[in-house]
């Protein structure tokens, strides 16, 4: 078990290293840097001025070296200016270069400065993660019980008309991407032209104070898409369990159907959905980006769109690192959880 865990963690760290390198290289392409230079130093500067601006601000080195600096394993760049003062990556403007540390990167907790919001990246990310955490919490509260209920009801009597209609419902929800269900839900429940006007079409006010009126639609939009998939997995696992020998024995003994489902089948049927729910996180992340954009909720996904749309390199890097880590960690948890929950694997 320990060796398995160690191997998984090492692979995960190596994957994370590769992924951050790829993201770093893709966000620091020549045209991106040129755009940064032009937005910082004026859009009408000549090509030579762009090059010299990039040189002066530490963008002149090879990508790998700058990746090392950003990560915090190589010392940050320092450049002596014409008037004798020293500027550098690790030296905040106006402070003494003597006391500045040599290394300043992600590993040291220095995530850089956002050019759009004019704030430290770490601050923006922690704020937006908290907001998205609130959204995700309610999504889970709605989605997981709903999906398990759908799946168990459909799976306990395979082939019945209930099974067919519930399966049709879960196919329908998996076929409805968030940007379609969001548009439909807003029209039905929030539109001032034709709709019912029960809820708000924007979740901006939910950032401060989330209530039923302004938070229902975003939560339901994300939950619906994930729900169908989890329900189908639960159904598959439930039908498999219901054909097992011990269920037949229980039936022959004359145990009530309700007790068979609740006492005997349910626990074994819920192992597989656990893995699926954990692996849903990367997909939920997509949903979060779409829904936060659609409902104008300034969380993590909204930040990603702003960073990418405005060529905010440091912020985009930070957002990418966090989202890649979320994905990798949930994969790890699902692997370990699967081994832990399944006695056949745990004991062997």
């Amino acid at each position: 078990m320990l060796r398995f865990l160690l191997a998984r963690v090492v692979t995960m760290l190596f994957t994370a290293l590769c992924l951050t390198l790829i993201v770093f290289a893709l966000t620091n392409l020549e045209p991106n840097l040129e755009k940064v230079a032009k937005s910082e130093a004026g859009s009408r500067i000549s090509d030579e001025e762009v090059v010299s601006w990039l040189e002066r601000n530490g963008y002149g080195q090879p990508t790998l070296v700058r990746y090392g600096e950003w990560l915090g394993v190589l010392p940050g760049w320092q450049i002596e200016q014409a008037d004798g003062s020293v500027r550098g990556r690790c030296i905040p403007i106006g402070s003494d270069p003597e006391i500045a540390p040599d290394f300043c990167g992600v590993l040291q907790g220095y995530w850089g400065e956002s050019t759009v919001f004019k704030q430290p990246v770490s601050e923006i990310i922690s704020r937006s993660l908290a907001l998205t955490g609130k959204l995700m919490f309610w999504v889970m509260v709605v989605m997981v019980p709903g999906a398990l209920l759908l799946g168990v009801l459909a799976g306990m009597r395979e082939g019945s008309r209930t099974d067919r209609s519930l399966s049709a419902v879960s196919i329908l929800t998996t076929a409805t991407p968030e940007y379609v269900s969001g548009v439909l839900l807003i029209t039905i429940f929030a539109s001032s032209a034709v709709g019912l006007r029960w809820f708000n079409g924007s979740a901006t006010s939910a950032m401060e104070d989330a209530n039923f009126v302004n938070f229902t639609l975003p939560v339901v939009t994300i939950a619906l898409y994930g729900m169908g998939y989890i329900a189908r997995m639960t159904r598959a696992s439930m039908t498999e369990v219901m054909t097992a020998q011990y269920i037949r024995t229980a039936r022959l003994k004359g145990v009530k159907f309700r007790n068979i489902v609740l006492r005997h089948a349910l626990r074994n049927a819920l192992i597989a959905p656990f893995t699926v729910i954990m692996l849903q996180f990367p997909w939920l992340l997509n949903g979060v980006v779409i829904v936060e954009t659609l409902f104008n909720y300034k969380g993590f996904g909204w930040t990603l769109v702003q960073a990418a749309g405005n060529n905010d390199i440091e912020l985009l890097l930070g957002v990418s690192v966090v989202s890649v880590f979320v994905v990798l960690v949930t994969q790890l948890i699902s692997d370990i959880g699967y081994v832990y929950l399944n006695p056949r694997i745990r004991i062997s």
């Binding site: 994957t15 590769c18 992924l19 790829i22 993201v23 893709l26 966000t27 990367p282 992340l285 997509n286 980006v289 779409i290 996904g301 990603l304 769109v305 990418a308 985009l316 957002v319 990418s320 989202s323 890649v324 994905v327 990798l328 994969q331």
Partner: peptide, 14 residues
């Protein structure tokens, strides 16, 4: 697995 670990939207934006 490397490609699959990217959230799709992030990959598109890159």
């Amino acid at each position: 697995n490397l490609i699959l670990a990217f959230p799709v939207i992030l990959l598109f934006y890159l």
